[in-house]
Simulated scan of single mutants.
Amino acid sequence: MEFRQLKTFITVADLNGFTRAADVLGYTQPTITSQIQLLEIELGVCLFERIRKNISLTHEGEKFLIYAREIINLCEQAKNIVTDRSMTKGVVKIGALESICTTRLHTLLKVFHHKFPDIEIILRTIKSNEHKQLLIDNQIDVAFCLDNMMTNSEFIVELAVPEPLVLLAEPSHSLVKYSDVYPQNIVKYPLILAEEDCSYRRTMISILSDYGVTPKAIMEIGNIQAMKQLAMSGLGIILLPKITVEEELSKGKLVELNWSGPSFEFLTQVIYHEDKWMSPALQTFLKVTKEILPIQYCMSGKI
């Protein structure tokens, strides 16, 4: 079993194709096919189902993929352990929610790139419920998520800062004049909410359920900008992190409702898997994140 065979196997599995893997690895397709066949002969199992031009992992292939990733990871650790840890080179793969990408990360990444131009950052926009599995599968190194405090011991919370959520409507909405807005008030109007897997949408629905009330209507929108536009058009009430609507609030295009129901206790959290190898590049990125992110929150009056 050779190192290159394992890398080829993982690449084919990730890209779901021999041709794509050949392009990425710089091999010919026959070479890719030969490496996989030799690996299958050595293991005595079929790793991929091949039906016409489509391939998929067999049950044995799925199990072997887990160990192949671990072997590659250990080899990388062994190689890096003897290199100069002061080197500021490498790659950091980040997964972040859209709301965090568009508000918090641009300043952090700008500062980081200025200080460490030789560290490559790969940024991936993720959904609210994706980060755990992506970290487990080692598809990302670190996640920026917005949720209740992480309690799963499998993950390390490197940083957690409060992230207020607000209910908003356009200025002429009838609820704007209310000194106290409760769940039974907002269900009389359409709610413009993020997709079903969004953490703060789930919290809102849970609160309404606890109060025994049901929304008049829910408009499900997967884009924050579209949600804001619909609310500004008077089509409903939205729930969003306050940082995402600061411009609209300052210009009077949206107004924060005086929510008196249960509080939305959410935090922006920077997390990674407990078994993640802390490369010099990742350590450097986390260090800068802990320096810069809290400053952003302080400047915007969050903590």
Rank of each mutant, 00 (worst) to 15 (best):
E220Q: 12
Y27E: 07
I224F: 06
D137E: 01
R202P: 04
S279G: 02
R124S: 08
L108S: 02
I271A: 10
L135F: 02
L239N: 15
L47N: 01
Y297A: 15
G212N: 01
E163K: 08
E248H: 06
E120F: 15
D147T: 14
D141H: 01
C75L: 00
K177R: 14
M219A: 10
V142L: 10
L65H: 02
F285E: 01
E246K: 07
F266C: 09
V142M: 04
T58P: 13
A78G: 09
G26N: 04
I207W: 04
L267I: 01
P294K: 02
I81H: 00
V213H: 06
D14G: 13
T83L: 04
I10F: 00
S172W: 05
G95I: 01
T28D: 10
K253F: 12
A68S: 04
E170Y: 12
M87S: 13
Q133L: 09
L208D: 05
H131F: 15
S153R: 04
L240I: 03
E247V: 10
K251D: 05
T125I: 01
K228P: 08
D118P: 08
K253G: 01
Q133N: 13
K177N: 14
R50V: 14
K242E: 10
A226L: 04
Q296S: 14
S99D: 07
Q29E: 12
F112Y: 13
Y297M: 13
P262Y: 00
K216L: 15
P117A: 02
Q29T: 14
I205M: 14
E220R: 11
P215M: 02
I100Y: 06
D84S: 15
C198F: 14
L159Y: 12
L267Q: 08
L15F: 02
L235V: 04
L240C: 08
L257A: 00
E120H: 14
I66M: 06
F285P: 07
I292Y: 04
Q29Y: 10
E291K: 06
L135K: 04
I100M: 06
S153A: 05
Q229D: 13
P262I: 04
I66H: 00
D137N: 02
V181R: 07
G261V: 01
V111R: 15
R124K: 12
T125R: 00
V213S: 03
M150E: 15
I221E: 06
Q35S: 05
L123Y: 02
G252H: 14
Q229E: 12
L286H: 07
L38Y: 15
I224Q: 01
I140H: 05
I192Y: 11
F64I: 09
P190K: 08
F3E: 12
P162C: 07
M232Y: 07
T102V: 11
V270R: 07
G61S: 09
K127F: 11
F285N: 01
I51M: 09
P171C: 00
T102A: 10
L6N: 01
I55F: 08
L249H: 02
I224A: 05
H131S: 14
A169N: 05
S34E: 05
V157P: 01
E60F: 11
S172Q: 13
T102D: 00
P215F: 03
L38N: 15
G261L: 02
L39W: 10
L74A: 00
I36W: 14
G222H: 12
